[in-house]
């Protein structure tokens, strides 16, 4: 198969050459394999060294006693047996679930409402830009400013509460309030971002559907329930799954605001794992907890996708 490789190549030759491109053994692709492996080499190294290997090593370490300073020792299921009887672990799990529940329910609800309202009212990029501001700053910055806003003595929220005749609330230092308070920070941080994703999904719904709904005499709430929700289900399912996975791994906000206190009332799983590993150098036990959390995430994700039938919308 001889292709004339000159600038003056007739069009038919070019078309022929283009067709040859799709053939793996064509001369045009000679040397592709070698080049391809060179091009994916950095990514492949990164994948093997920092994803594949640590995943298996993490699973392995869960079954060992490992203090970093001495080689890991195989101890079978001992870590998991210990885990089952570890009150702090169960407390952490409960605290984490509590946080996840608030962030996911309140966060998803408010994001959805915000996205829908924005979509019906305005296409202004300025408004959408403003609501994603919290997404741009770090959790550390968010945690610091909210510590100040929610401060028990001088925080503006408590000053407002007192001005309205209420009692000052120790948001970040009382057992009852600490998780809801941190969850509010989490919602504040992610609300705009989630809303913009849902908003982008709403924009893919043709306006004619809403026009038709209006002609049929549907009210806004009816259109929301009958049109928006069913059409948006795949995107909402994705948002929900990602929010749950993200919320389960909350760490930065807790670390900066409370460090797990008071008295473990905000000790989420990730904080407990971090403390076990880097406070007590009990890497084996910490790995066992990380693996447990991973399994929880897998189960929850698959259950959610199953329940939400995420891959199909209700278009029919």
């Amino acid at each position: 198969m001889a292709i004339v490789k000159t600038q003056a190549a007739p069009r038919s030759a070019r078309v022929k050459a283009a067709r040859a491109m799709s053939n793996i053994n064509s001369p045009a692709h000679r040397g592709d394999a070698r080049l391809a492996w060179i091009l994916i080499l950095p990514a492949l190294v990164g994948f093997l060294a920092f994803f594949a290997y640590p995943t298996f090593r993490g699973i392995y370490l869960s079954f060992t006693k490992f203090t970093v300073f001495t080689p890991p020792q195989w101890i079978g299921f001992d870590n998991f047996v210990e885990l089952a009887g570890d009150d702090v672990f169960w407390n952490s799990l409960f605290v984490t679930l509590y946080y996840v529940a608030i962030v996911v329910v309140v966060g998803t609800f408010l994001s959805l409402v915000t996205a829908v309202v924005l979509h019906r009212l305005t296409a202004s990029t300025v408004v959408r830009g403003m609501i994603i501001l919290p997404f741009l700053i770090s959790n550390v910055v968010a945690a610091t400013v909210w510590s100040w806003i929610l401060d028990a003595q001088l925080g503006i929220v408590n000053i407002a509460i007192e001005a309205l005749g209420g009692e000052s609330i120790m948001f970040l230092t009382s057992r009852g309030w600490v998780i809801p308070a941190v969850a509010i920070i989490g919602v504040w941080k992610s609300l705009g971002y989630t809303a913009i994703i849902i908003f982008a999904g709403l924009q893919t719904v043709p306006a004619s559907i809403y026009e038709a709904g209006r002609i049929d005499g549907a009210s806004e709430p009816q259109m929301f329930r009958r049109l928006t929700l069913p059409l948006m289900r795949p995107i909402l399912a994705m948002v929900l799954v990602l929010n749950v996975i993200g919320a389960f791994q909350v760490f930065d906000l807790i670390q900066v605001t409370t460090k797990g206190g008071p008295a473990n009332a905000s000790l989420v799983l990730q904080s407990y794992i971090f403390g076990k590993a880097f406070g007590q150098f009990d890497f084996g036990y910490a790995s066992a907890m990380a693996l447990t959390l991973f399994v929880f995430l897998l189960i929850i994700t698959f259950t959610q996708l199953r329940l939400l039938r995420a891959s199909e919308s209700d278009t029919n």
Binding site: L39, F51, T55
Partner: peptide, 26 residues
Amino acid sequence: LQWRGRELMFGILLCALMVPPVLTFL
């Protein structure tokens, strides 16, 4: 590029999306 194992390799690399940081950070 056209090379043998391209789709398989791509699929393997995408598996990383399934692994949350909590499992790999330690």
